[in-house]
């Protein structure tokens, strides 16, 4: 269980209050108008922003003061999840070691992860040779080898077409279920996530609240969200 208790973040001309609880092994959507602070929320959980007050509790431990790498979290960004000068295999290997030369002992794990996302045959390709979907799969493979229980997706498939996006979301659903991951996904289109998740968090008017039930929210949105939807 991820609990975010009364956290406030102050940036230059922006502040955000967060108080919410995410169920373990669930997939939760994060929605809100652009500029409302969805990325700030992820930055806070991921450890890229300082907390001004409050705490972040994961499985009864306060992770609010840990370095990003020490947190039980993997973040997938909108873009640039892969290093362009490393091939697929090396990009995944980075999830286990930064010493790319002695990756031999991890070969089994890496190949295994690549196989799960159907990327094994593209091991030696560089990001510039991959399609958008393949890049997303590679990033997912790295998330798998890292074995962090919490996976944050910051619109990672927004550049893909609707069909491919649905396919990727299904892949996320499948592997998060198999690997017992807790997943949060930022999206612009909550309807699209209807098959994948039930819970939704709303970031609007400088607060992040939830979770709400996705279907109900869509039927009956609060005022702050109705304009946006």
């Amino acid at each position: 269980m991820l609990k975010i208790n009364n956290v406030t973040i102050k940036l230059k001309s922006f502040h955000l209050k967060i108080d919410l609880t995410i169920k373990p092994k669930s997939i939760t959507a994060v929605i809100g108008p652009s500029g409302s602070g969805k990325s700030t929320l992820f930055d806070m959980i991921g450890g890229f922003n300082q907390l001004d007050s409050g705490s972040i509790i994961w499985e009864n431990n306060d992770i609010g003061n840990l370095e990003p790498a020490q947190r039980p979290i993997t973040v997938l960004f909108q873009d640039n999840n892969l290093f362009p000068h490393l091939n697929t295999y090396q990009n995944v290997a980075l999830g286990l070691t930064t010493k790319l030369k002695n990756h031999e002992k991890f070969k089994y794990k890496i190949d295994n992860a690549l196989e799960k996302v159907d990327m094994l045959e593209h091991s030696n390709k560089y990001p510039s040779e991959l399609s958008g979907g393949q890049k997303g799969r590679t990033a997912l493979a790295r998330a798998l080898v890292r074995k962090k229980p919490l996976l944050l997706l910051d619109e990672p498939f927004s550049a893909l077409g609707p069909g491919l996006r649905r396919e990727m979301l299904n892949l996320v659903k499948e592997i998060s279920h198999k690997n017992k991951l807790t997943v949060m996904i930022v999206t612009h289109d909550p309807a699209e996530l209807a098959d994948v998740c039930q819970d939704v968090i709303v970031v609007a008017e400088n607060t992040a609240t939830g979770p709400y039930h996705l279907q109900e929210l869509l039927k009956n949105p609060p005022k702050s969200l109705s304009d946006y939807l």
């Binding site: 370095e67 990003p68 973040v75 909108q78 290093f83 000068h85």
Partner: peptide, 30 residues
């Protein structure tokens, strides 16, 4: 260098050498 790469580096636990060899050096090489 995309900001995401630096965050990625942070979440993957790169130290200073790792950042140099994996992010800065490739940029310099191109």
């Amino acid at each position: 260098i995309p900001a995401e790469q630096l965050r990625l580096a942070e979440s993957l636990g790169f130290n200073k050498q790792d950042i140099f060899f994996l992010i800065e050096l490739p940029m310099l090489r191109t």
